[in-house]
């Protein structure tokens, strides 16, 4: 197994061109487990830790360009304002040690349906782009098109994730994750919700309840039609119930050692109802403040 340590981003891309299929490693929270448990023996490992710009983020006020290796701990500390959904999800990742090392780039690279970052990225919606670089150029991949299957994404063998571009939240965002322990747990299922008052739309993201992270388009459409954005009146009690049903119906879960399909659907409906109530309360509060 070759071990590649590029000193710069260009070197990294060149190395990938020379060794397509090399496994990039940054925080190593997924990769090192697989290597240590002998679950994976890639032909080459590409260590990105010397490429400093991967651990930086920037914002033009409309969106955040989040470097692939910015650790979750910094997302919690520095980006809870512009990216509240992702920051909430970041709080649920692993242990403090994992949050100091793990990053959204790693989640995207592994493309596990249980990755905690996926649902808020999907919910943040239109405009979320994965920046995939190679010596051939840059692709901006819409997040909806990024996930192909269980632990499969659409990156080409020579591509690296440079950053994720995420619109700055224009409304309340929430993330909830069910696990069978109160910390350091892989999601049994997870749900993210983002309200987008700017255009009266809603974003959703479902984790750990289908072969890939996915949205619940019918549930989004239902909410878009049902929410009274201008008055911000209290929710009709029927709305969260129906929303929950639609979210559950959008999932395609399996029975596994972490939980049953039936429970995952049930829990998603509960999470959908609750996150909607929290987001709507926040939205009404914001409306009240601006009025």
């Amino acid at each position: 197994m070759e071990f590649l340590r590029p000193a710069s981003w260009d070197e990294a891309l060149a190395a990938m061109a020379e060794h397509p299929g090399a496994l990039p490693v940054s925080g190593g929270t997924d990769v090192m487990v697989e290597l240590n448990f002998d679950l994976r023996r890639p032909p080459a490992v590409l260590d990105l830790n010397r490429v400093a710009e991967l651990a930086e983020w920037s914002s033009d006020g409309a969106s955040v360009r989040l470097g692939a290796a910015v650790p979750y701990a910094r997302i919690i500390d520095e980006l809870a304002g512009p990216l509240p959904g992702l920051a909430t999800a970041a709080r649920t990742v692993g242990s403090p040690q994992i949050r100091n090392r793990g990053s959204v780039g790693g989640n995207l690279g592994a493309a596990s349906p249980a990755g905690d970052a996926h649902p808020p990225l999907l919910a943040a919606g239109r405009g979320v782009r994965v920046e995939a670089h190679s010596v051939r150029g840059v692709r901006l991949i819409p997040i909806d098109e990024f996930y192909l299957g269980v632990k499969r994404n659409c990156l080409a063998p020579d591509e690296l994730i440079r950053a994720v571009r995420i619109p700055v939240a224009d409304g309340p965002q929430q993330f909830s994750k069910v696990g069978t322990r109160n910390a350091m747990v892989i999601a049994v299922c997870a749900f993210a919700l983002a309200l987008h008052p700017a255009d009266g739309t809603v974003g959703t993201g479902i984790g750990s309840a289908a072969p890939t992270p996915r949205r619940a388009p019918e549930a989004e459409e239902y909410l878009r039609e049902s929410l009274d954005w201008t008055s911000g009146g209290p929710l009709d009690p029927q709305v969260p119930l129906r929303f929950g049903e639609l979210v559950a119906a959008a999932a395609d879960p399996i029975d596994d050692v972490r939980g049953t399909a039936a429970y995952r659907r049930h829990a998603l409906a509960v999470l959908a109802r609750r996150t909607l109530a929290w987001c709507w309360d926040d939205y009404r509060e914001q409306l009240g403040r601006t009025a």
Partner: peptide, 13 residues
Amino acid sequence: LPGALSNTSHGEG
């Protein structure tokens, strides 16, 4: 809370 920082409840249920 049950679920703790996984943010599953703010007191509901």
